[in-house]
Design a protein around this nucleic acid. Structure first.
Lengths: 133, 133
DNA sequence: ATGTATGCAAAACATTTGCACCTGG
DNA sequence: CCAGGTGCAAATGTTTTGCATACAT
C-alpha cells in the first residue's frame, strides 16, 4: 500500500514489490517464510517467481523495511520493521509467534556489551516453548 | 577423551565419535560449524565423512552432549553442553564469539514467559556487533 | 531509451538419507 | 556374530545467480 516506502528505499515501484509489501503489512501473520509469501502470491493468482520473493525480501531488508530472523528449522522468517525492536516467544509445536519488549532486558544487554567492550548493532532473543491451551 | 559420555548416551564408542567429541572439548574453539569439524578431521588425516559429522552431532545433541545454535549466515553452530546455560556476543566481522550469563535477564525471561502463559523449554539470545580492537 | 526488475532454470549451500559394507562389544 | 555405525553418492530443502526478456521512469 505504501509505495512511498519502496521509493524511499531507492527501488522502483513494481507490482511484485507492492504485492509483497502488502502481504507483510496486511496478511494477518507478521512472521513469514519466503515460501509462505510465494504461496500466498500464487493463491492470489500473482505470477511472481520465488527467486523474486527472495530478491525483494533481501532488498527490503537492506533498506530497513523488514527484518530477517533465523528461527530453528533451517529457514529464515521475515517481518515488517516497524521501527521498534522486540523479541520473540515461539511455540515449538504450533509455530505461533508472540512478540514482546522488555526494558529491563534491553538495559542489561547494553550493560553487558559495555562490560565486554562490545558495540551492539543488533540482537535477537528467542524463547522456545509452549503456550498454555 | 571422555568415552564414558558417549557410552552414557547409549551410543557405541567409535573412532569418529571420539574424535569429534575430542575436537569439541579441546580444539580451542567452542563454537564450530559441521564443516569446520570436518575440515579439522581432514587436517588430522582422519577419514571421516561429512555425513558422519552431521549424524554424530545430531546424536550428541539428542543426548544433550552438545547444543546447536542458529547464528546468522544460514548454518548451524555446535558447542559442548557444559550444563550451564549461557548467551552469546558475536562479532559480525571476525566471527569471534564470547559467552555470557546474566541472572537478571534470565529472571526477566521467566517472568515474561509467565505473563504470556508460556513454558520455556529453551532460549537463545545473541548480540551481534563489534568488539573494540 | 535505458538502467532495473523479473522469470526461469541452473547453481550453490547446508543438511539428510538410502544402501552396501564395516566394526565394536 | 550382528545390531548399529560409516562412507559414498544421491536426494532434499533453502537461497542465490546467470541470462534473456520485460518494465518503470
Amino acid at each position: 500500500m505504501q509505495s512511498s516506502d519502496i521509493k524511499k528505499a531507492g527501488l522502483k515501484v513494481t507490482l511484485p514489490r507492492m504485492k509483497i509489501l502488502d502481504l507483510l503489512e496486511n496478511s494477518g501473520e507478521r512472521h513469514l517464510k519466503a515460501e509462505d509469501i510465494y504461496k500466498m502470491l500464487l493463491d492470489a493468482d500473482e505470477d511472481i517467481a520465488l527467486a523474486t520473493v527472495y530478491r525483494v525480501l533481501t532488498q527490503f531488508e537492506t533498506a530497513g523495511l523488514v527484518n530477517r530472523h533465523h528461527f530453528e528449522g533451517g529457514h529464515a522468517i521475515f517481518e515488517l520493521n516497524d521501527g521498534e525492536h522486540h523479541d520473540h516467544l515461539v511455540d515449538i509445536k504450533t509455530g505461533r509467534v508472540v512478540e514482546f519488549y522488555d526494558e529491563i532486558i534491553e538495559k542489561r544487554q547494553k550493560e553487558i556489551a559495555k562490560e565486554n567492550g562490545f558495540t551492539i548493532s543488533e540482537h535477537t532473543m528467542i524463547l522456545y516453548g509452549n503456550f498454555e491451551e
